[in-house]
């Protein structure tokens, strides 16, 4: 009986967590593209104005970023200004939760058919590399190891801490800006 009452709350909490994580990741993608040369190099191969979306099917939470040129991303907090070029779609909120709570690596989620790619697969591979790089920066090493296929051997603590601090600072100021506007 108690479980039945708690279940809707758990579902609601899971949805809120996924929504929040998408908001953090979207802003963090923008931030990492402003400070990391490797991410900028990867992103430069994307066309200018390229819109990337990660969402939960059929019409669940989503994050949308745009490549605004020179390897920089811009996070769109609302809806996409035009049809997106690449969409990575989780089949269910439960699958998004598994990935965003670092219980399942992104690559494993792909392998397990938890999500679909709508758009150019080579861009999806590139965006996954960027997401992996971001997660390696912003997550503690032990957590990051659960999120990415392989934690980068050449990412040392000073670089990680400095980059993470700069990314979190930018994410926080972006949140504040959003609230103000």
């Amino acid at each position: 009986m108690l479980a039945k009452r708690i279940q809707p709350m758990a579902f609601q909490a899971r949805r809120l967590y996924v929504e929040l994580m998408f908001q953090v990741m979207g802003r963090a993608l923008q931030a990492v593209s402003e400070i990391d040369a490797t991410v900028q190099k990867e992103a430069r191969a994307l066309p200018e104005g390229f819109l990337f979306e990660m969402m939960v099917m059929p019409d669940g939470p989503r994050l949308i970023v745009e490549h605004i040129g020179n390897g920089r991303f811009h996070y769109h907090s609302g809806s996409a200004p035009r049809p997106v070029d690449l969409s990575i779609q989780f089949k269910h909120i439960a699958h998004a939760f598994l990935v965003l709570s670092f219980q399942e690596k992104t690559a494993v989620a792909f392998a397990n058919d938890r999500m679909l790619v709508d758009g150019d697969i080579s861009y999806a591979i590139r965006m996954t590399r960027i997401l992996n790089r971001l997660e390696s920066f912003i997550l503690p090493r032990l957590v990051a190891k659960r999120a990415v296929k392989e934690y980068p051997a050449n990412l040392h603590l000073p670089e990680k801490l400095l980059s993470a601090a700069r990314i979190y600072l930018k994410v926080a100021s972006n949140f504040v800006d959003t609230v103000r506007t």
């Binding site: 392998a111 999806a124 591979i125 392989e150």
Partner: peptide, 13 residues
């Protein structure tokens, strides 16, 4: 090769 879709499923990064 780095942008090929098969890269996603290789067991090693």
């Amino acid at each position: 090769a780095m942008d090929d879709g098969s890269m996603m499923f290789n067991p090693k990064e």
